[in-house]
Amino acid sequence: MTAPVKGPASYFPSIEKKYGRPISEWQALIGASPLTRHMELVSWLKSEHGLGHGHANALVAHTLAENTLAENIGK
């Protein structure tokens, strides 16, 4: 039995369905952005890509957490 997905990733199926892009594509856009602060990225996704606040926030939170984890593992 699989544990239910919790946290920001729980939004991913609805994000993919609503906006028609895979999560990996959104994460690549976030990673390529010159912006680095959480709320700057959220605002950018909302204004430039039409995402709702909750969806943008979930994508940014998850992506930044993954990047931080990867950086810490690389140390």
Rank of each mutant, 00 (worst) to 15 (best):
29 L>W: 02
24 S>M: 07
19 Y>I: 07
68 T>E: 08
37 R>K: 13
59 L>P: 01
42 V>N: 02
22 P>D: 14
61 A>H: 06
38 H>I: 11
32 A>R: 07
73 I>K: 10
19 Y>F: 08
73 I>Y: 05
13 P>C: 02
43 S>T: 12
40 E>G: 09
55 H>G: 03
60 V>R: 04
56 A>R: 07
17 K>I: 08
21 R>Y: 09
49 H>T: 10
71 E>T: 15
43 S>N: 12
37 R>W: 13
2 T>Y: 14
6 K>W: 10
59 L>K: 00
2 T>H: 14
73 I>P: 04
47 S>Y: 15
16 E>R: 03
25 E>F: 14
67 N>Y: 10
62 H>V: 02
23 I>C: 01
3 A>Y: 10
1 M>L: 13
24 S>H: 00
41 L>P: 04
3 A>E: 11
71 E>K: 15
10 S>I: 01
58 A>M: 01
32 A>S: 13
23 I>D: 11
48 E>A: 15
48 E>I: 15
11 Y>N: 00
3 A>F: 12
33 S>D: 00
69 L>W: 05
30 I>C: 03
47 S>R: 15
12 F>Y: 13
28 A>M: 08
68 T>L: 09
43 S>C: 12
19 Y>T: 05
10 S>T: 06
11 Y>D: 01
74 G>P: 10
66 E>T: 05
16 E>H: 03
67 N>C: 11
15 I>D: 01
65 A>G: 08
26 W>Y: 03
9 A>F: 08
47 S>V: 14
11 Y>R: 08
23 I>V: 09
60 V>E: 01
65 A>W: 02
18 K>Q: 13
29 L>P: 00
12 F>V: 04
41 L>Y: 08
24 S>R: 04
73 I>Q: 12
30 I>T: 00
36 T>Y: 10
23 I>M: 05
43 S>Y: 11
40 E>M: 09
51 L>Y: 03
10 S>F: 05
67 N>W: 11
40 E>Q: 06
47 S>E: 15
26 W>E: 02
74 G>V: 13
64 L>E: 00
53 H>N: 12
54 G>L: 10
68 T>P: 02
6 K>E: 15
62 H>R: 05
39 M>P: 12
36 T>F: 12
41 L>M: 05
33 S>N: 00
16 E>M: 05
46 K>E: 12
48 E>F: 13
27 Q>S: 06
11 Y>W: 05
33 S>F: 01
55 H>N: 06
9 A>V: 12
3 A>K: 10
70 A>C: 06
3 A>H: 08
48 E>M: 15
50 G>M: 01
61 A>M: 11
30 I>H: 00
30 I>G: 05
24 S>N: 09
20 G>S: 02
19 Y>R: 03
35 L>A: 09
52 G>L: 11
64 L>M: 02
6 K>C: 13
10 S>K: 06
39 M>I: 13
34 P>T: 07
72 N>G: 09
51 L>Q: 04
72 N>V: 12
51 L>C: 02
54 G>Y: 06
18 K>H: 11
74 G>L: 15
63 T>H: 03
60 V>K: 04
47 S>Q: 14
27 Q>L: 05
14 S>F: 07
2 T>G: 14
26 W>M: 00
8 P>W: 01
35 L>I: 08
63 T>K: 02
60 V>T: 00
9 A>Y: 04
53 H>P: 06
55 H>Q: 02
52 G>N: 09
64 L>P: 05
49 H>I: 11
51 L>F: 08
26 W>Q: 01
54 G>N: 08
68 T>R: 10
